[in-house]
Nucleic acid binder design. Structure first.
Lengths: 160, 160
DNA sequence: CAGCGAACTGTTATGTTATTACACCGGAGC
DNA sequence: GCTCCGGTGTAATAACATAACAGTTCGCTG
């Protein structure tokens, strides 16, 4: 598994790449990456952390792109449904996907101190729960895996 | 892993056992299993499914045990903190624990059709995410593992 | 026994997250 | 042109959760 989220990185390019990947995917699939949807994705990529729907809505409102909750929720639903973003249940928040386009079952490491989120891979079929589910005949369609703890940087700060 | 939740079982005894286990644990630990707390645990065990805080509150209100949200939330906090119940993030709901007393890291199978929940074990340190977290120095303190899908009974009904 | 603090409960008010419902708009296809 | 459809704008409200503070009980300690 390749983990991302706590390392330094070329942020400008990661925003561009994220939007480009989504645009390309929409083009191929005949989906509409409308201004609101594109902007919400950009906001998620820019801030590079888990954002609540109302945080996003505040930004949209400032920019005149919509001021009521459904505007944000609809755009987020679209992004989540198409794999460009994920919902973090633990935080009631959303993050841009780190592997857009790839078909994946995401897992998250959430720092309880700085709220930053790293995304990795969890294969639901191969772990203990997946095997047990198969054994009793439960059909898993989707898995939420969210680990909460301290990221390396916040462990550092704790020691100071 | 021993999975529970979708099989038939002796329900009366599972309520009794759950309350007894909690009472015993509280006795040993010097915790107070007050009437409200005990009743909330019973409600969770009786209904044997994930219940929202307001569902529980409705029942408490009918019984004259408290009518405001904090009453329910405080009892639930107590039960969750002490391992007698778990919060299901995906559903904003709560279930009684199937293995009270045992120190465990729960994982859930949630049926999207009937909303029933089975509880199993997931060892966060041993799976793919745990190993990756260790590799980058992230310290996992708690893990939310919630798989959503169709339970055996609802798969049956689908075919009809 | 009075005074005190800790734990719990009761209640009001409010904050936060999410959805329903319906009007409107613009483009694709007939 | 007309209609269908997907998307957007908006108002209203539902669902989930917490803050803040008053009142009670009970055990401890002086």
């Amino acid at each position: 598994m390749e983990l991302q989220g706590f390392e330094r990185h070329d942020h400008a390019s990661c925003i561009r790449d994220g939007v480009d990947a989504a645009a390309e995917h929409c083009r191929r699939e005949g989906l509409q990456l409308t201004p609101v949807r594109r902007r919400v994705l950009e906001i998620l990529l820019e801030r590079h952390r888990a954002l609540g729907a109302y945080d996003i809505l505040d930004t949209l409102r400032d920019e005149g792109l919509g001021s009521q909750p459904p505007v944000a929720y609809r755009a987020l639903d679209f992004l989540v449904k198409n794999g460009f973003a994920h919902r973090i249940e633990r935080l009631n928040a959303f993050v841009a996907c780190n592997h857009p386009g790839e078909n994946h079952s995401p897992a998250f490491l959430i720092c309880r101190k700085c709220d930053r989120v790293a995304e990795g891979q969890a294969d639901p079929a191969s772990d203990m729960l997946g095997r047990s589910a198969a054994a009793i005949g439960f059909r898993i369609e989707r898995a939420v895996v969210e680990a909460e703890g301290l990221c390396p940087a916040c462990q550092e700060n704790d020691r100071k």
